[in-house]
Amino acid sequence: MTSPLEKLAIAFAGLMFGFVVIVTFAPMLVTLGLSIFPLQGGRPDFSAPSLAAYQALGNQRDLIEAVVNSIFVGLAATIISAVLAVLTGLYLDKAYAIGRTFLQTIIYLPFVMPPIITGLALLLFLSGLNIDRSLVTVVIGHVVLVEAITFRLVSTRLGNLPLSLYEASADLGASGWQTFRHVILPQLLAPLVVGMMLSFTISFDETLLTLFLSGSNTTLPVRLLGKMRVGFTPDINALVVLVIGSTIVIALLAAAIMRKNAMRF
């Protein structure tokens, strides 16, 4: 039974929900609109929608180069951090593991500290070692940033695995490696895939840290930031729409896998 007052409260909260969705989706809608409707004297001309901006994408050489850089950085950071996260998760799952709190602290630290601090600390450290800023330094920054995500998902799953799983495998005569390969690894697949997808989308959009760590050859968000002062042309908006569209597809897939496997952070 819902009382009239409660119905009113739900209706009011529903209105707020609608308002919030409009405000938070507005940037995407504006970008989509500006990529389809050409500007006429500062106003979008709603009478003549066209896909011309999407055909002119090839003109934005430097941005396409930046997209390629972002994909490279995202893939490298995702793969390296996933390998480290799985190794660390497996290691800490063992009874003989030492330095548990230490490892967890240094893995979670970059995720809890404001990125400006993580970025500046790395900048200071790398310049002390006379290492020039490049895509490699960006990858390093992203690896330490996103490792926490996959680590969290993998170690939660490992902690939830019943001991009987290991025992049954050993009883059936499997070696340590066989148990890992045929019993444990399949269990880790879902958290690993979701962790990697989230890592990639975070790395792809990372700006606050990347700005400190990249040289002249940089990723898409930093390149776009540089274009902000002069404004985005329709073809830049078109490129952005495609990029955000792909990110959202990855996010949707990750969410679907998480739901299907009843995963929790």
């Binding site: 938070t24 940037p27 995407m28 504006v30 970008t31 968000p221 776009l224 955000i244 959202i248 990855i250």
Partner: peptide, 20 residues
């Protein structure tokens, strides 16, 4: 739906708010 905007580019959000 509420979380989805997190996956939209940070820089693009900034630019969009400037143009709004």
């Amino acid at each position: 739906v509420v979380i989805l905007p997190l996956f939209m580019s940070y820089v693009v959000k900034l630019f969009a708010f400037r143009s709004i």
